[in-house]
Amino acid sequence: MTEERIAHLLKAYQNGTATELEKEEFTNLLSDRDNADFFENLLDEQWANISEDDLKHFEFREQSAVLQRIKNEIHPVSISKKISFLRIAVAAAVVLCIVSIGFYLTKYNNKPQEIYFANDIAPGKNGATLTLGNGKKIAINDALSGNIANEAGVKIFKNEKGQLIYQVVEDLNSALTFNTLTTTRGEQTEVLLPDGTLVFLNSQSSLNFPTNFKGAKERKVTLTGEGYFEVTKNKLQPFIVASNQQRVKVLGTTFNINAYADEPHTATTLLEGSVNITNTNSQQNATLSPGQQAIISTQQLDVKTVETDDVVAWKNGYFMFNNETLSTILNRVSKWYDVDVVYKDDAMKNKTFFGSISRYKNISELLKVIQKTDVATFEIKGRQIIVSSTD
């Protein structure tokens, strides 16, 4: 998998499509001693693919541009590692020169056409709908600020960061009240629950929760779609998240749950602390360690190690696709940009792609990144994305 990733990043450099995140990732891979042998083989292959005729086109001014490009874009190996990494650092520098040569030769010989779209679609934004216990609905948007509502001893307001805040202002003797926070396609939001737990809700998701956890044996919420949780610790009052096919129990930790109904499975990924997962269909359970992900599909519960940065990329403002199928990628994209995806050939759904891009760019920029790798071609018609084969 690492070698496939390196090959992808190499191609991105040569095509001139590497993002800032990809450049940083490539540099880190070059600096890893475990990759030394692979880079030596890569070095040999790259030199073998550059002919003498090609090198004749690589004039002095292009060489200077390459050196400047490496200076501007590539972070040097840490000085503290210079002794143990000296061999790989030298090889890395040469590989980077070759990568840059490949970039300029591709540019010189092929002169690829710029990709244009007749129209474009803006990214999603912060927003949601809050449904109070009495059924009243309140639109949560950028224009809304300050105090929003008071319900059963709880003050609800939106702070300067755009977060929805629940603040208990008095003891409750009344019946327990539940609120629901819902995002549509093209929306995301944040809420700080009465116990101090922070929840990020992705597009087309909802969170149902009590306005106060006081006196309850557990802090239980219900999630549909995707949410990222930073749970406030309370050993005496476990935090429970009920979602599609599973029940997650924690005392205080950081984790992500993807429980969309249109996804093939429910995935819970742990970043910090510890969580216990129960498959509500089969009653199988597992306790996760940081960096692990529980996958639930009907009767099955499996645990694997994952790159957590990839999983929570959406919360940090970018898409990260790590050898994922086009159908999985575009399903995620459709929720954020509020678009429908149409495939001219269903076989396209299984094509795979590596890449990353900001969630706050127009959809055309994302589609260009994918299209430049020859995975597929795209057309934007209204709020539809038409996917075609490159063959």
Rank of each mutant, 00 (worst) to 15 (best):
R383H: 12
S356L: 10
D34Q: 12
H75Y: 15
R87A: 15
T269W: 06
R61P: 00
G162S: 10
A91F: 06
L198S: 13
L30N: 07
V387Q: 02
V306P: 02
L86N: 11
H8K: 09
F229A: 09
R87N: 15
Q245G: 14
E4S: 13
V311H: 06
I380P: 06
N350D: 14
F239C: 02
E263H: 05
V95G: 11
V312H: 11
K249G: 06
F354E: 01
E272W: 01
G355F: 06
N179L: 08
K361W: 04
N119A: 15
D142E: 14
T269C: 10
T268P: 03
L223N: 04
G355N: 09
T180W: 00
L9D: 07
S100N: 13
E272H: 13
N258Q: 09
K161D: 15
L9E: 08
T328V: 08
L176E: 08
L172H: 05
S51G: 14
K335I: 02
E230H: 07
I165W: 01
V250N: 02
K381H: 07
E170W: 01
N322Y: 10
I6A: 08
F178V: 00
T377K: 10
A216G: 05
D195S: 10
Q384K: 07
Y104E: 13
Y166N: 00
L251T: 04
Y13F: 15
E230P: 00
T278L: 12
S84G: 06
E324I: 09
Y228V: 04
T222C: 08
N212D: 15
V199W: 07
T373D: 11
D32V: 07
D374W: 03
V250C: 02
R185I: 03
K23N: 10
A89E: 12
V199Y: 12
N173K: 11
R33W: 07
T224A: 05
V221P: 12
G16M: 00
F200P: 00
Q371F: 05
T131P: 06
W314I: 08
S364T: 13
F60W: 09
K23V: 11
S100K: 04
A376D: 01
G146Y: 04
A93K: 14
Y116C: 03
E3I: 07
T266Y: 05
K351G: 12
T373I: 02
A93Y: 15
R332I: 02
A286C: 09
A152N: 12
I165M: 12
A267L: 04
V95E: 11
S388T: 10
T373E: 15
T224F: 01
T129W: 03
T224V: 02
T131I: 03
N141P: 03
G252K: 05
Q283R: 03
I277E: 08
F117R: 04
S51H: 06
E73N: 14
N109Q: 12
N202M: 06
F157H: 12
R332Q: 13
F229C: 07
S78L: 04
G273A: 07
L201Y: 04
K158A: 09
R383T: 10
L42P: 00
T287W: 00
G135E: 01
E22F: 03
F354L: 00
N134L: 08
I88T: 14
R33V: 15
Y360I: 03
N279T: 04
R33Y: 13
